[in-house]
């Protein structure tokens, strides 16, 4: 049972990492448009484009 003393902190660290990155992703507006990026990856970048402006 002593293994629990290792596993539980690991679980807590994993959870806090998930929550941290999830909140970060929401604030970065990554969940605002779920459809376009899926299509966008099918398109080849065939010429140099200016960096996308944050909207």
């Amino acid at each position: 049972m002593t293994v629990l003393y290792v596993i539980i902190p690991i679980a807590i660290i994993l959870v806090s990492m998930f929550v941290f990155f999830f909140l970060w992703a929401v604030k970065e507006e990554q969940f605002d448009d779920l459809e376009t990026p899926a299509h966008k990856m099918l398109i080849d970048d065939w010429n140099e484009k200016p960096g996308k402006v944050k909207i």
Partner: peptide
Amino acid sequence: VENAHLNMSQ
């Protein structure tokens, strides 16, 4: 045009 960003879900 600087940028055109299409949002397909909306």
